[in-house]
Design a protein around this nucleic acid. Structure first.
Lengths: 196, 196
DNA sequence: TTGCTTTCTTATCATAGGTCAATGCCGGGG
DNA sequence: CCCCGGCATTGACCTATGATAAGAAAGCAA
């Protein structure tokens, strides 16, 4: 199972099998049941997760009890809670498992520790973080400018995979609209494609 | 002027004056006039900006010609365009100057180059990027869950400084609402505070 | 100062999307 | 096999915010 992570790393940076075995002793694999909580709001997180199989998410719950999905983390994605990682502060978000999931649990200093052995880990880290920022810029732009329909179309082309695995109310929650609205959008789209 | 940047670095990481002088020869200071374009959508960016004095922004323009502000960068903030930095790809966003601005222009490999001399630059980089992600998670959460009024109140408490320096239509654009709506929100808030 | 441009406010009207409530549809547990 | 609880759909209605237009105010340049 760890070999998935090794393959992932080797695709990104030049790291030998020996180097990997040196850093991989810090890694643990953990299994989460569908629906299982990983981190509650208010707790202090000290781990980063790399999803091997399954699907995790981070989300908030607002004052009216509605949930808002900040991020999906399917296979080969990272999930972490930055308040804890950076400053030992309490989390603003919840983390849980949408599907039965196997994930690698990395201690928060994993990157800096392993970079002492494999310097290129820093490059990897930088690339990953910059990429995350790039994606979030796009998402913010979408939230600022797009209609419900545009958001949904963007989502299904960007994440066709997730579209099938995730219940619609979660997609709605990720897009910032209600499940009812999403249902209407889908209905309209279906009509458009029938009589063009 | 470069000393501002030195002070900034020394506040964040342990870097000596000598070390700074070793890495600072790659740095240029550039002045931008109010309204001056820094990067057009479609261009390939290869620089990162650190604002010494003034105010920069990144934004998009949608199909109806409306602008959406992705980020403000006042003093001591970073501004960069990740498509270019990471993959030499074309920018999705525009960068320009809201005020007359002095900024340090860093070549895109500045961090990795200077880390060869001052290893702790990697830690700085990681902290900065993680922090940016943390802020954007909050912003996404706000865009998903908050009303126009809540967004505005959040903005003025978070950036009281910007609230005064930036025209209201830009704040509206950052919040994802129209200038007219923001004007209404402000009117309502004023009423609330008169008769509590 | 004068005049021009940009920004802000206000009012009216339009609408996308939210809310509420009812119904129907699975799919899994017993 | 049946029942139940989570999803999805739909319709009726409502509201926050967008669109449009016009005028007032505030900068700013000459």
């Amino acid at each position: 199972m760890l070999s998935i992570f090794k393959d992932y790393l080797q695709k990104k940076v030049a790291i030998t099998d020996e180097q990997f075995s040196l850093i991989s002793d810090k890694l643990k694999i953990k299994t989460f049941e569908k629906g299982e909580m990983i981190l509650m709001k208010g707790e202090v997180s000290s781990h980063v997760y790399f999803v091997l199989d399954g699907l995790l998410r981070s989300y908030s719950i607002d004052s009216k009890g509605k949930t808002h999905i900040i991020q999906f983390a399917p296979e080969q994605w990272w999930l972490s809670e930055r308040n804890g990682i950076l400053f030992n502060e309490e989390s603003e978000f919840f983390l849980d498992a949408i599907e039965n999931t196997k994930a690698i649990v990395l201690p928060k200093d994993f990157i800096s520790e392993s970079a002492k052995i494999v310097p290129c880990m820093y490059e990897l880290n930088s690339t990953m973080l910059n990429n995350a920022i790039r994606f979030m810029h796009r998402r913010i732009n979408m939230l600022l400018s797009a209609t419900a329909e545009e958001r949904y179309l963007n989502f299904i082309t960007l994440y066709p995979n997730l579209t099938l695995r995730v219940p619609q109310w979660m997609i709605a929650s990720y897009l910032g609209i209600t499940p009812e609205s999403l249902s209407r959008v889908r209905k309209d789209l279906a009509h458009k494609h029938f009589k063009p």
